[in-house]
Design a protein around this nucleic acid. Structure first.
Lengths: 369, 369
DNA sequence: TCCCTTGCCGAAACCGGTTTCGGAACCGAC
DNA sequence: GTCGGTTCCGAAACCGGTTTCGGCAAGGGA
């Protein structure tokens, strides 16, 4: 290749400012500048200030991969998506990634995303990212009841933070929303409105939060002085179609519920379809409170009353927690549980009919097609 | 910190195998091994084979950030999400990222994701990622009519590949789906079924593809021997709510359409709501063909007839194209346009009524509340 | 036989940082 | 004034690769 072409093709190229440029400008050595910027105690405070000012003035930014070669840390957060996974989390994904990314960039970190086709593949990908030092730690979404990712990362001694608590908390840091409190509160709100038969439509049993939410439902009944009836509980409902079926099932009971608590908005959307099929008015003939705060809920008629989770914030919190974890904080000090936000939007009101009356109504409309 | 604790806390640590380990094992030098693995021509073929075999046997994998310090390339694909952006792309995001990521990992690359809050912020983030050498090139989703990202990357001399064609193709590589062909084909299919009044509901004008799809619609009319009527065109419809409004508008015309082509499935979902409001049967009283292939379309009654885009494949193609681009291929050789897949699912059939009959029907039902 | 290529590889510099080690300068104490 | 202890910084090695440069040996032509 002709050197001349090379020259003319490229800009004067404004060479990157390196640590040597900074040290030369100050009459110091690279090592001093490096230690000054990394907060070593054997650098005089006055020197550190001089260094910082000059570095800032010259626009010096250390290359993370140049640091990594010695430190082994690339200042990157790892995140593995499982695409085969149920698609419930997809609407959240952009917000979630935005949260992680923004927390990361505040500290000069970046976000490395990889996709896996199965849980087993997830482990492979994690191992590979670790082996190649592409990430300093991982954010684990959707904590399972027993989660192999945790075992893998423990073995590799790679830091991680989970979105969701888990059974065995050893070495675990996490951020979570108290879904169980929301479920309990939902039941109590319905009870306070006068509902006596309150059903519960839960999500997939493999997730840890599913069990917590079930407990919350039970606690809510207890707090409201209502008795637990297993007939009023449905599980494994993640999609609108699941929710529709569950609703029809529940309303076909001899003593149907007048209010239903859904563990997930997506499933609750199906209740609207079921209500239309049965010619019931949501919020009037049948009340519903759900959880998640997806956008679609707001456009239903009436809008879905729900406990909203700020998923962007979750990403931010997880990002900052992970960075601290990588920097050495103990996992026990990196556990946060926050509350969901209740959005009262009209799908839960005082029952127009008792359970018996509702049952009669449904029988009569079912008779005349 | 006590060295002893350090020692006991860590594993024997199975030190990573480096290029020096490989060269020692072969009685060669690091430089020979390096050049052998990178395909330099001054290494004997026999030597290269020996090196490759040994490297493979010892499980040697070069650290990309160690290479980057000299080469300036980190083997990473950059991707910036705009969260303020309309949420239409969110359902696709997971699939799209999975596609990119899988293409990347085939070549030992990774995917670096960042989030931006606005178009201006996107440019800042791109500049920063480039300055910090966090990505070797970018995949640009949703090409705009005039796109500042292109100008920025041109100036920085950083390679990129667009998802969607653009006006000024200088330096541009792209992957795209021929939405205009799909729109044309949709019109022709409706015409072949007997529709004479065929409307078009388009997306946001800022996107380049919106204009292409409009052209496709016009071409379809022409091919079918129908005349273009601006009254039958609606624009800027991205959400179900937009689509619902557009449908009602169109059906309120003196000569309403009996078939509607939507540029996006999401907007077409709103047609079902409008039809329910007006007591029309989709696929019978009003036909619709849309574009994108979102999952929700399949669960409607009747399922939405649409042109489906394989978004995962798009991600894969874009990933491989970008890697080639970074490695030096000319942009002109990296342009691909593929066709969407037609899914005939029942929302488009022969019209039960003519436009006039439909108008009369709508007037009569509107009269009685 | 001599010289000039050509093919192939080693030695060493280099990339941009970090970290270890040692020593100069300064301090107070005796 | 000498001595031991701090404080603070420079020199140099180091991290794991890549790339430049030069040289040896084999091969070919005169």
């Amino acid at each position: 290749m002709h050197p001349v072409m090379e020259e003319s093709a490229r800009q004067p190229a404004a060479r990157r400012v390196t640590i040597a440029d900074v040290s030369d400008a100050l009459g110091l050595t690279k090592s001093t500048v490096s230690r000054a910027m990394n907060g070593y105690p054997d650098i005089a405070e006055s020197t550190r200030a001089r260094v910082m000012r000059m570095a800032d003035k010259m626009g010096y930014r250390p290359l993370s991969h140049a640091q990594a070669i010695r430190t082994g840390r690339v200042r990157s957060i790892g995140f593995v998506i499982e695409t085969a996974e149920h698609d419930a989390h997809r609407p959240f994904l952009a917000e979630f990634l935005a949260g992680i990314s923004s927390a990361a960039s505040l500290e000069g970190w970046t976000l490395t995303v990889a996709a896996a086709s199965s849980p087993g593949n997830t482990l492979q990908i994690i191992e590979r990212l670790c082996a190649d030092r592409k990430a300093d730690g991982f954010i684990l979404p959707r904590t399972l009841r027993t989660d192999d990712r945790i075992a893998t990362l423990r073995r590799l001694q790679v830091p991680f933070v989970m979105f969701g608590r888990t059974g065995d908390p050893t070495d675990c840091a996490w951020y979570d929303i108290a879904g169980e409190d929301a479920m309990q509160s939902a039941v109590q709100k319905l009870a306070a409105l006068g509902h006596r038969r309150i059903a519960f439509v839960n999500g997939g049993k493999q997730y840890n939060y599913t069990h917590l939410r079930h407990e919350g439902y039970v606690a809510g009944l207890q707090a409201a002085g209502l008795t637990f009836d297993p007939a009023l509980v449905r599980e494994n409902c993640m999609s609108p179609e699941d929710g529709r079926r569950a609703t029809r099932d529940l309303l076909a009971l001899d003593q149907p519920p007048t209010g239903i608590v859904f563990a997930m908005d997506r499933a609750a959307l199906g209740l609207y379809d079921a209500a239309r099929d049965l010619d019931l008015q949501v919020g009037q003939d049948i009340s519903v409170i759900a959880y998640d705060g997806i956008i679609e809920g707001a456009t239903m008629t009436p809008p879905l009353t729900t406990f909203s989770v700020n998923i962007r914030r979750a990403g931010e919190r997880l990002g900052t927690l992970l960075i601290r974890r990588v920097r050495g904080s103990a996992p026990e000090s990196l556990r946060r549980v926050e509350q969901a936000t209740f959005l009262d939007r009209g799908s839960a009101t005082a029952p127009a009919r008792s359970s018996e009356e509702l049952a009669n109504l449904l029988r009569s409309t079912a008779a005349k097609p």
